[in-house]
């Protein structure tokens, strides 16, 4: 038998993500100002910028954890118009296509690792318990944590928890994956494990949008780099090119600050 791929989603092709003219305010503060961005299917986009630049908010708009005030979000063939009332069905349909990994992992502490990955499959995809747990074990194997299946997340290190969170999202056969600073809560040596899993995932052709400060990952794995500041995209392009020769002064300052760390 061949080794199963990390996604095993031959029947679920990855999708592109298109963000068009998205604006979002929190009170009087304009966090996203008319942002547009296209992510081609199977590509990896790294989203960088100083804190408060709106990059996490933008990412959270893609699966409507934040509701944009204006603009449209398209994932695959599904388009959601901001401002209009989004039905529960459309909302869940969108979220089922998009997996998300959080900075703080957000595993369910009262479930075992195996249940964390199997339970959403049963509820959302209607898989049987056996089927869901089998799939969970395959994914745990791929992230190197098969032996953690029966334990609770609290018994796992941060890096392990984040790999489990990635497996949980992948178990639902998403067509695109969002990562919100997936290594920021981790010690660098542990972050490496997570980066390795993400690198492997990128190689399988998953569409990925990654908010990150990991410049090496952005350069080596990213197909596209987007630099944000104050709710605007100030610069974008091929990661190595932007990093080597930023056009904007603010990009230069941000890059040197991150690279000097």
């Amino acid at each position: 038998m061949s080794v199963p791929s990390l996604t095993m989603s031959t029947e679920v092709p990855t999708a592109g993500v298109e963000i068009s003219n998205i604006s979002k305010s929190f009170g009087n503060h304009l966090v996203l100002d008319d942002i547009s961005m296209a992510v081609t299917p199977g590509s990896v986009t790294a989203l960088i910028g100083p804190s408060g630049s709106g990059k996490s908010t933008l990412l959270r708009c893609v699966n409507l954890l934040e509701k944009p005030d204006r603009g449209t979000i398209t994932v695959g063939s599904q388009t959601i118009e901001a401002g209009s009332r989004v039905s529960d069905r459309d909302l869940l349909a969108l979220r089922r296509q998009v997996g998300m990994v959080f900075q703080s992992f957000n595993l369910f502490p009262h479930f075992t690792v195996l249940r964390n990955i199997a339970f959403p499959q049963e509820r959302i995809l209607g898989r049987s318990r056996e089927e869901a747990e089998e799939r969970a074990m395959v994914l745990l194997d791929r992230v190197g944590l098969r032996e953690k299946a029966g334990q609770h997340p609290g018994r796992c290190s941060g890096g392990q928890q984040q790999r489990i969170a990635i497996a949980r999202a992948l178990a639902l056969d998403p067509r695109a994956m969002l990562f919100d600073e997936p290594t920021s809560a981790l010690d660098p040596e542990v972050g490496v494990e997570v980066i390795a899993v993400m690198r492997e995932l990128a190689e399988t052709g998953m569409t990925m949008i990654v908010v990150t400060h990991e410049m090496q990952f952005a350069r080596e794995v990213g197909d596209h780099l987007v630099v944000m500041a104050d709710g605007h995209i100030i610069e974008e392009g091929i990661p190595a090119a932007v990093m080597a020769d930023p056009r904007e002064e603010r990009t230069r300052r941000f890059l040197s600050a991150v690279l000097d760390r």
Binding site: N63, L65, D88, L92, R95, R96, V98, G99, M100, F102, S104, N106, L107, F108, P109, H110, F119, P120, R123, I124, A165, R168, A169, L172
Partner: peptide
């Protein structure tokens, strides 16, 4: 219960009532 729990449940695509009954309430 940390806000991230509800966000994770929502991002997975769980119904609000499932998220409450199986994720938020037990914790």
């Amino acid at each position: 219960v940390p806000k991230g729990q509800l966000e994770a449940a929502a991002a997975l695509g769980l119904h609000g009532r499932t998220a409450f009954g199986r994720v938020i309430f037990p914790q």
